[in-house]
Design a binder for these strands. Structure first.
Lengths: 234, 234
DNA sequence: ACCTGAACACCGTTCAAGT
DNA sequence: ACCTGAACACCGTTCAAGT
């Protein structure tokens, strides 16, 4: 990565952190770099490539082997050491921490193929953990996509507002008396509690480990389970 | 919903379907409606509210009780009849079909709280299905968020390109010889297959049903499982 | 009550020109 | 090799004015 390109991307990331993705314009980035908008193009290509580059740089930091110039960033994901549940948990927490630290990145992750060298390395860590858990090889890529979708989707929902804020528990109440929300009516006690998102994320991770263990178990035995397409032992 | 507002939103949706979300400008929508950009503001509010309104209108169509003026739209989600796995599957398929029919909607779902009347009704269908499956009440809202995150995230990944296209299986090969991708090296046979996304979605749904059943089982028994935070029977 | 027209402060990107 | 300046075709939104 040419040094100038890295500088431009870091300026753009800082701008997005401070004022949101909408504030990241070629003109605004150029001004912070101290240059004319047109001077960015040889290094960046265009606006879409600028956004790709910003995301790629975050992913690169995420995978640094602990304490390499990533000051102020969330701890990088552990590499291939330790029991598989610990490795899965570490990667998942790093991903969520990245999105919380840079909420604007959430929307970008879903929009670009995960095929940059850095994101492929992240995927590889998950592959290895799933294989070590005993998941049959033909099911590993699918399960990796499901896991990363949950982690990214959870963080994106938190950061983007889909999970809502403090005032929304009341928003469904107007629809209750008319009886159009029978499910909510059966849950009122549970719905009025404030949600601890850290705890919910950890509970989701625990449940996914339950699922992974179940899949590994049905893959190991000679008797196929009732669900899932044809598969074979890796 | 005032008739003019509905007309404006439908024009904006058609524009997004035809030319992408980036083509949806106040000016372009106004031109199609046959009016000056400023004439939209009393009905719409501003650009952000226009996007919210577009998404809300899609959600409304999704929940129509089968065959009410939703010509050319994906089949609406089944209401509260039938076994819970069928209901869950129907809602999940409807959500994915909506995103495939209107790919631009994927990015919006994560960015807005799911508290409009229509999205609350969709959530209620999932609550009811999970309760009928035997999931303890305190775990139902969390599980609903996990399920909808998987469905929306899967569809968003498909529509947005995160899952990649035909050519990307080759993209990791350059990194294999150097040994930085041990997980991929153990999976080459599985990674070279073309992916059937319909089948993968169905397999994910089947696995989520396995997980739901496991949670219902541990909630019913007096012996708590090793994973998950404190919980109580509904 | 509903809409228009001009204006303001922005965009991304091109092109030809400078050093 | 690297950067600038002017220009083009756009944005969302304001405000005062028209009917």
């Amino acid at each position: 990565m040419p040094e100038k390109r890295a500088e431009i991307l870091d300026v753009a990331i800082a701008l997005a952190d401070e004022r949101g993705l909408a504030a990241v314009s070629m003109r605004a980035v150029a001004e912070r770099v101290g240059v004319t908008p047109m001077a960015l193009y040889p290094y960046i290509g265009n606006k879409a490539a600028l956004l790709d580059g910003m995301l790629g740089r975050l992913l690169g930091r995420l995978l640094l082997p602990a304490g390499e110039e990533a000051a102020g960033e969330p701890r990088p994901a552990a590499s291939g050491e330790g029991p598989w549940p610990d490795r899965l948990t570490a990667i998942a927490r790093s991903g969520r921490a990245m999105v919380i630290a840079h909420p604007w990145a959430a929307g970008l992750v879903f929009a670009r193929p995960a095929v940059t060298p850095d994101s492929v390395r992240a995927v590889d860590l998950l592959y290895t953990a799933l294989l070590d858990a005993g998941v049959p090889a033909p099911e590993v890529p699918r399960l990796e996509r499901m896991l990363s979708t949950v982690v990214i989707g959870f963080a994106a929902s938190e950061a983007g507002g889909r999970f809502g804020s403090e005032e929304d528990p009341r928003s469904y109440r107007g629809l209750l008396p008319s009886g159009v929300l029978p499910g909510h009516a059966r849950l009122t006690a549970s719905l009025d509690r404030r949600v601890d998102w850290d705890a919910e994320f950890e509970a989701d991770l625990a449940d996914l480990q339950v699922l992974i263990t179940a899949i590994a178990r049905r893959g190991a035995g000679p008797v196929p389970g009732p669900a899932g397409p044809g598969r074979q032992r890796g």
